[in-house]
Design a protein around this nucleic acid. Structure first.
Lengths: 349, 349
DNA sequence: CTGAAAGCGCTTACAG
DNA sequence: CTGAAAGCGCTTACAG
């Protein structure tokens, strides 16, 4: 009986209710007054036929698809799932649907994805760009298309929701300083991404403010993932300047660092303290539980989506705004007090 | 100059190329022969105008949207991101786009999501259902709509791609038995999900086959997440029957178990061995690195997507098929040899 | 090979 | 309050 795949259309409803398609449309949308009793008849028919308006047809007509595009460099990166949830949650509140694209950190496919999303006439786009050289994004923005960047941004010209990375770098470093550490290694990501640049600057500033010398040998950039953290730390441990603490600018890197330290027969935090950055869910399960700079991923996603809908629903063009959400220090067990901390601090004077 | 938001349509191209819209359409689709030189003119115009066909209009006309829906219970569950990537990867190969929905494990919103996806006229649906009582899925299936279930399935009537959970439970338990353990605790998920039921049965079968008694006190069901693993283990440690090994049916639960064991001053694996299930990326970074039953999440996603496209592109209705992908034992350090294992085995005879 | 026409399923001025 | 008509941007038989 259900064999035939023909879907119920507005005409079927109209016929059943004995009215015109226009009236059905109006009864359903509620934008135009409709007589109560005819409305009831329509609703009855809708019920019986289990009618669902074709969103495509509607979109074609009114020029809004109630769909937003989400372009992520890598869904498997543990930062993103929470952000994605934040986005889908607010999209749902707005009756919007989200199309997810994964770029594998590749610029080519990023551009292809954007093209395909554009073809789908999404109402707007949220994304974390693969690189900083993103002319295509500026172009989009220029053309008046609603776009908001997430986590990774580019300058002040396009809307973005990010985290205050400078403060993250600064506060993290300062925590370590306050515990009495003076030889703080930094295992950082690629300087091509503004966010790592900022964390780096925060680190330097904190050191400078505390009049603690910066030791270039203890600074490694361009690292990503736990493997890089692991190898970076191994090489540091085999060099001649041993750090008393390590600030890794992502939790995975921090975990790699801890692994390396343990493998060398040293202890965290007794011998070397380790500070992460992210506060991924699993980081609390580590041994020791990771002290880290927490990023509010879910809120980041939420905020970006809210901003996007504001752009979408605004009549006039809004001035670009980059929102910086605050970081938070999460104190657990991987950072201790420097041994002989007081001496050290004293001797520094 | 770009100020006006009017998008380029097929008419603009037609006009510029001096042909009809029909010809433009044909030149672009390639389904019908078009004269080479006029084709070139069309392509030229497409280039100059940067024309992108409106996928919605196309979809409305041909009745395919080149969009699939993906309904997940919880994107933050670490099992899913890899599966999602598998799905988006093959969707891209098929020129399809994926709409992502998150149900928060809630049946109500699951049904609402399906409805909204249906309204969007997606070509097919992949999902991991929230519960087993899923009449709405059967209904969908019955109506001839392409659906494939992922990871969590329901019977033999609807297409699914899952993991061989019985074997997972069996092989995992057998690994523990082969190492000489005899009091193997099971920290399991909800029996409402077939997958946990199967793992449980695998566990029982392995014990039975080895003629090792099943100890009900060591079996905890309805646990999910690391917290539950943690508390389950705590209560076991405070009871009078101490296990020599624990089989947790998810990695997070295993991590909670390890945390509890360590807190009690015991060592993993020296005092108690722990086996997980999942092989999440972070599990190798734990201390000790987790021995676990690996699920091929990416392949699961890939396979489900491939199956879905087969369903979508098939003229006739295909017979439902549930594919079971194999698990793999990943040996790391959280499972050791039972102390005095040989005695034990001997004494068992 | 190509154009004019019809139509996919809606919405919304335009009349009444 | 309601219907007939036009049109969103495409595709595809139908003629030629």
């Amino acid at each position: 009986m259900k064999g035939v795949l023909r879907v119920v259309t507005i005409k079927d409803v109209a016929e059943k209710a004995g009215v015109s398609a226009s009236t059905v449309s109006r009864a359903l949308s509620g934008n135009t007054p409709v007589d109560e009793t005819t409305k009831k008849r329509v609703m009855q028919a809708v019920q019986e036929l289990n009618y669902r308006p074709n969103e495509l047809a509607r979109g074609l007509k009114v020029g809004k698809t109630k769909t937003i595009g989400l372009v992520m460099p890598n869904v498997r990166n543990l930062m993103f799932p929470a952000a994605i949830q934040g986005i889908t949650d607010v999209a749902r509140q707005h009756g919007s649907t989200v199309i997810l694209c994964n770029t594998d950190e590749d610029l080519e496919t990023e551009m292809a994805q954007i093209d395909s999303l554009h073809q789908r006439r999404v109402d707007g786009l949220i994304f974390s760009t693969a690189t900083s050289d993103s002319d295509h994004i500026l172009e989009l923005k220029e053309s008046g298309f609603p776009v908001t960047l997430l986590i990774r941004h580019m300058g002040e010209d396009v809307d973005a929701v990010i985290v205050d990375n400078f403060t993250g770098g600064y506060d993290g470093t300062q925590l370590l300083l306050s515990r009495g550490f003076r030889r703080i290694a930094l295992i950082n990501g690629t300087l091509k991404l503004d966010l790592y640049q900022q964390r780096y600057e925060g680190y330097r500033q904190a050191l400078t403010d505390a009049e603690v010398p910066i030791i270039p040998d203890l600074i490694h950039h361009e690292r990503s993932g736990w493997m890089d953290g692991y190898y970076s730390m191994l090489s540091i441990l085999e060099s001649n300047v041993l750090p008393d603490a390590v600030f890794a600018t992502s939790d995975p890197k921090a975990l790699g660092v801890i692994k390396a330290i343990k493998e060398k027969g040293l202890k965290v935090p007794e011998d070397i303290s380790v500070l992460g950055y992210d506060n991924l869910e699993t980081s609390q399960l580590m041994d020791p539980p990771l002290t880290t700079v927490a990023q509010p991923f879910y809120e980041l996603g939420q905020t970006a989506a809210k901003r996007l809908f504001k752009l979408i629903n605004s009549k006039r063009r809004l001035k670009p705004k980059v929102e910086k959400l605050p970081i938070k220090l999460v104190l657990r067990d991987s950072v201790a007090e420097a041994s002989g901390a007081s001496d050290l601090i004293a001797s520094d004077k």
